[in-house]
Computed example of a mutant assay.
Amino acid sequence: MKTSNLVDYESFGDGMPIVFLHGMALSKESNIFFFEPFLQFSNWQRIYLDLPGMGHSAPIDKANSDTVLDTLVKSIKEIIGNQKFVLYGHSYGGYMAQALAEIFSNQIIGLFLTAPVVTAHKSKRLLAKHQNIFIEPVKVDKNADYYNDFLSMNSRINQENWENIKN
């Protein structure tokens, strides 16, 4: 489904809504694959959004955190209305979730963040050095142009993880 401002989302189940926001360069599928196996029989409505310009959501003009936030506010208002809800954010989605928690402070009953961006200004961030753990050699045949990106974004390097990314 898409909102009027072309933010793509999927909704599962009934009950109190949880809105899920993924990290940068991911899509709603990353949250669906992780959370649905243990939430599918719950009493929660799960709403998985694709951030603007990612997944199946349309890009926005002059994309920056302010315009992404504005687009998310409009989309959540359209999907949720005045209902109370829980908000989940991962990485950049966690950064957005912190701002959304302030904006929707009268509606949000819980906030769950994993690896959230707290300070977005790159020069003020303290990040651990990225390390690859090579579990096994990887046969890189199809989509070889993406292998360096795969290495830069993943820690556990094996054939299965490469297959999941390249397809």
Rank of each mutant, 00 (worst) to 15 (best):
K2I: 11
K2S: 14
T3A: 04
T3F: 04
T3N: 05
T3H: 04
T3R: 02
S4W: 02
D8E: 09
S11C: 14
G15E: 11
G15F: 04
G15K: 09
G15Y: 09
G15I: 05
F20L: 03
H22Q: 12
G23C: 06
G23T: 09
A25T: 15
L26E: 15
L26Q: 15
E29H: 13
E29P: 01
S30T: 12
N31V: 00
I32D: 05
F33D: 15
F34R: 08
F34G: 00
E36W: 06
S42V: 03
W44P: 00
Q45D: 00
I47M: 02
I47K: 02
Y48V: 01
M54S: 13
M54F: 14
M54W: 10
G55K: 06
H56C: 09
H56A: 11
S57I: 05
S57H: 10
I60N: 11
I60A: 07
K62Q: 11
A63I: 10
N64P: 03
N64A: 07
D70K: 13
T71I: 05
T71D: 06
V73L: 08
K74I: 05
K74P: 01
I79A: 04
N82H: 04
Q83A: 07
K84R: 14
V86Y: 00
V86L: 03
V86P: 00
V86C: 00
L87I: 06
S91N: 13
S91D: 12
Y95N: 06
A99P: 01
L100W: 04
A101Q: 10
E102P: 00
N106A: 01
N106L: 00
Q107V: 00
Q107R: 02
I108V: 13
I108D: 03
L111W: 10
F112L: 03
V117T: 14
K122M: 11
K124F: 09
K124E: 14
R125N: 11
R125F: 04
L127N: 14
A128H: 13
A128Q: 15
N132R: 06
I133H: 14
F134R: 11
E136C: 03
P137T: 09
V138G: 05
N143C: 07
D145M: 10
Y147P: 01
N148K: 15
N148L: 13
M153T: 15
N154E: 08
S155C: 14
I157S: 06
Q159V: 11
Q159C: 09
N161F: 07
W162G: 04
E163G: 02
